[in-house]
Amino acid sequence: MSDQDRIASGIPVDPHAGPAPLVLAPIAIATAWNVQGDPTRAPFSDEVENLFGVRVPTVANTTVRGGTLLALWLGPRSWLLVHAAGAEASSSLMDFEAKRDALNAHGGALFDVSASRVAFTIRGAHAATVLAKNCPLDFHLRAFPVGGCAQSLFGHVNALFYRPEASSFTMMVARSFTRDAWDTLRASAAQYGGDVAPPP
């Protein structure tokens, strides 16, 4: 589609729209643990690294990847460790109770929230545009770089966004809101056609 055609069609010009068609699909989360603690205290941050093999990010809205484990910044003292289903099982996310006790002993906390959220992938052309129909965040690459994460609203619903690639996003919403978020996502994406998976 030429620039003029895009302009004439009424479809917003999305500078980051890749050539790939839009894909929306649920992603299964195998494990999601919420780590909390004070990262400026060495016993805590050392123990986190010891247990999970990553140092949690201390810069707001950034992530750190360690193998198949992804650590997302949720707050100055709170992170989400995620391990997607299907990927090779990560030994670092086993034996919850022992790790919880270890962190509790080092001034931190570990909560199992694996079933709390449902994740979607939104990737391909117009992925950022579709999200921006329902979310006031700035999804421009300069404001939301690859590897970044942020929490905001998607429609009515609290959502956590992560950007694995320039034209790909992961959105996580609380599971009881899944249908609501999915309906909003599909309604916003339908005009761009593409590959829309059945609802979860």
Partner: peptide, 15 residues
């Protein structure tokens, strides 16, 4: 916008 009819407010469903 989209927030009409069944989507005036979100709905939560148990498992």
């Amino acid at each position: 916008g989209h927030e009409t009819a069944a989507h005036v407010e979100p709905t939560r469903y148990s498992a």
